[in-house]
Design a protein around this nucleic acid. Structure first.
Lengths: 222, 222
DNA sequence: TATTATTATTAGTCTTATCTAATCATAATT
DNA sequence: AATTATGATTAGATAAGACTAATAATAATA
């Protein structure tokens, strides 16, 4: 009942990729996410399939079994709890915690996870707005609407990000964007779909379409 | 500048063994401590020697270089800080934290260690009374006097343990022994060197010589 | 549909960390 | 001092997880 860090990372990657589209997950996409070459992925898929953690047919892609999904959700739960811990208790910035949580998520101690969850008072979202699976593996499934789907004149609230890279997060911070912050779309520039927006402090800023695609929002009145 | 968990564990073991006696550390003793067979240890010693982390001459045992000791102390620092954290903040019992800290000690993030140390307000001793190396690798070197060296009639204070196994720690707890607790030696039974002792609550108890050897004490007036 | 491009797999190699069996060196004992 | 016991090392094997090169299957396109 114990899996290597490597196996855990594959399961987590397959879980995340499976949420991006309804189809089976491709060998290449797993390799891209984990920065591992396809032959290595193929080997591991056979291994995970033997252990009944994934459904795998040669050349047809993979999906998680119930058991595989349970493990993936446990890792994701730990990752997001640790990120919350690091930001809330240790005062790390939101762009600093991902790499550390990538290590902490593999610490194997169910009791530790219980205490961590309790210590944080059972948080539902992590510092990037991602939902934290609960102790039974239940996870809030949001319809992830991004800023690039919003029309001119709308007022929305930032509730998450799709890019977790320090670079992106630091850029958002420099724009004074933070979770829960209001964004009003003043205008959408026709030429390149750049967004002219206003944050709470009324200052106007222009952000690229690419940036908008990575900001998860909700309508102000939802 | 980065070492595998395995390498870190060898360095930690060599550090601890080198403190038990002044001589060079033997291959067998490392193997015993890490539950690894001697040929495996021999191989690793060559590897660590190539990396200049240990001084090693075939058949002559090993000792740490300055660099090797620095790494060992960093691991020990992390281990003891995490144990302190788990007991103080997460309310684990002192017999529950060793196994978890064995994992946490390998998390690689100097910034995390800094924050952890700060969060705990720079503790000097862990929940078992072991000294915690500071950020510069300075560690309080105690003369570790154990209860079996104490004479009848003496009154001492328990300041540490030499056996960190859950079994031993739970036994001490059942005897209501805790760090900082007073112990009066009422009598030493000649036959098997058992100790008749009194704790603060005045109740008399008999503990074996073996148990006494694993309790680190200081004189009441030091 | 035939060809080309992309993706996946197989085959074979490498490194790390482990093992067993056999040999060698040092230490202990008669 | 010779023998025996203990401990250490070498040799060779294995498993996990990575790679490259070659081949096979599927998808895209002319």
């Amino acid at each position: 009942m114990e899996y290597s860090q490597t196996e855990e990372n594959y399961l987590k990657a397959i879980y995340k990729l499976s949420k991006l589209q309804p189809k089976e997950v491709a060998t290449k996409s797993i390799g891209d996410m984990l920065e591992i070459k396809p032959p290595t992925v193929s080997d591991m898929l056979k291994k995970l399939s033997d252990k009944k953690l994934i459904k795998y047919a040669r050349y047809k892609g993979v999906s998680l079994t119930k058991e595989g999904e349970t493990i993936a959700l446990k890792i994701i739960r730990k990752h997001r709890l640790w990120e919350t811990f690091l930001v809330e208790k240790f005062k790390f910035k939101w762009d600093e915690v991902h790499a550390i949580a990538e290590q902490l998520e593999h610490i194997n101690s169910p009791e530790l996870v219980t205490r961590l969850d309790e210590f944080l008072d059972y948080p539902q979202f992590d510092p990037h707005g991602d939902p934290i699976p609960d102790k039974n593996g239940m996870i809030i499934q949001r319809v992830e609407k991004t800023l690039d789907k919003v029309e001119s004149g709308d007022q929305v609230v930032m509730v998450g990000v799709k890019d977790h890279s320090p670079n992106f997060l630091k850029y958002l911070e420099s724009l004074e964007f933070s979770l829960g912050g209001q964004i009003s779309v003043v205008n959408i520039i026709d030429y390149d779909k750049s967004y002219v927006i206003k944050t709470k402090d009324e200052s106007e800023k222009i952000i690229s379409h690419q940036v908008c695609k990575n900001i998860i929002i909700k309508k102000g009145d939802e």
